[in-house]
Nucleic acid binder design. Structure first.
Lengths: 242, 242
DNA sequence: CCGTTACTGCGTAGAGGACAAGCAGTTGAG
DNA sequence: CTCAACTGCTTGTCCTCTACGCAGTAACGG
């Protein structure tokens, strides 16, 4: 019986009944929200113990009453930033429609807080919201003949791919936000400079083509395409299995 | 015409012909190799400017002659750790076989240096090895009727999923390496503690089942399963397109 | 052949980060 | 009431990345 780290007890509301000392001045959710606000405004690297503490009206060290390390603070931030899934599946809906809705919803959350995809994590988060999202994703596959483990893997595959898609798009400067310092397409320009057509024929032909369309639409197109790949794969598996 | 950052010039061997001062005492590859060795032995967090510098016989600040920031050092580390792809496709091989081989090979590299998947990167790396791996992955799709952009997306989807699979497996302590500090399955034990069957029925049934089999085989099974999903998706797309 | 010049690696030093440890005040339990 | 637990605060340590100025070296231009 491993006992839970403090921040998880707090997040799940599992506090022992008899409390002795003074009431805590803040909740972890307030702390998490403050950290999220800082990250939203000034980026993840602006989140330090000090900055978060002063934001909630604490000194640096007081934060450690709620969170044992910065990694745990990150976990709390993720829980607050994702929030609980607001998603109800109509009972007559099929798995493909459900899973699509789920993937889009969780991707919206990531795009709303782009730093999410660059949070360094030592372990998959066990916070309430994250667990709820997982549960929700599994529920989307309810009407399939897949085993529990197959459903889990399928969901994790979609989730992992989606997270990576958001990250890559942001990294290449193609996410909605325009950064005046690095002009859009600068990255692809660099590629063009390095990738001589004779040594890397495939990349050379794919590079410019990728930039052809509208950049705002780029994310959406690629998202739909990649998700389609995954879903078709799941469909093939289901067809083989039933 | 954006000009390249120094570390990229060095990695690609693009130095101006006429060099004035004394020859550099080390190459970036030596520096990268030293950093990789440190990360392999003591983890990524042990890689600091100081530790790498002393490893190659420099003082801390001398490293900045080769690399302008730590992020660039990370990029060099990735280039060295992945290395160039040692992969030749037989001309008669089909795309599915090729892509499978490619995915396995690049995953091997990641498992050989598990810290790879937790390197924080601001942009997709443009180093020679990385570019070569991309090119190689695209070449695997040579005999398909897909457009260049579709091939690129398909490859990135597989790559992104694979990277995430490695990361998640390591995070849950299920990668080959046994860490005596955190007993295997501790993570899943925690899940079991939090996920009450009534609130999260799907997760509750998937959790224990996932741990049933041999842990060493877990990675391989899941890898094959997820890769199969992606490949089936690509196959479906090809079938629809031809 | 000799200055000039670009380039090398080194030493100092500073700002900011995550925490460890000990302290005074507050609240509930016995 | 008394005690013990719990609060948030203060102080201080160690480590990180990196800006800046330095002395020596090797090639280039004359």
């Amino acid at each position: 019986m491993t006992d839970l780290p403090r921040y998880l007890q707090l997040l799940w509301g599992r506090e022992p009944a008899g409390r002795r000392g003074p009431r805590p001045g803040r909740t972890i959710h307030e702390i998490g929200a403050a950290a999220v606000a800082i990250a939203d405004e000034n980026g993840l690297e602006a989140v330090s113990m000090k900055s978060v503490a002063t934001a909630v009206g604490f000194t640096t060290m007081s934060l450690y009453r709620y969170v044992d390390s910065k990694d745990e603070l990150y976990a709390v931030m993720l829980d607050v930033a994702y929030g609980p899934p607001d998603l109800r599946f109509r009972p007559e809906s099929a798995w493909r429609e459900r899973l699509t809705a789920w993937a889009r919803r969780i991707t919206e959350r990531r795009l709303a807080h782009p730093w999410i995809v660059e949070v360094p994590l030592a372990a998959p988060p066990l916070s309430p919201s994250m667990i709820a999202w997982m549960e929700c994703g599994l529920a989307a596959l309810d009407d399939t003949p897949l085993t529990s483990q197959q459903r889990l893997s399928a969901m994790l595959a979609i989730d992992g791919w989606g997270q990576n898609h958001v990250r890559q798009t942001i990294q290449m400067g193609l996410s909605g936000e325009i950064d005046p310092d690095s002009p859009q397409g600068a990255y692809l320009q660099l590629i063009g400079q390095l990738v001589e057509a004779d040594r890397f024929p495939h990349l050379a032909s794919a590079g410019p083509e990728a930039l052809d369309g509208d950049e705002a639409a780029f994310f959406e197109e690629e998202f739909a395409y990649g998700l389609g790949l995954l879903l078709d794969g799941i469909a093939a598996l289901i067809a083989r299995q039933s």
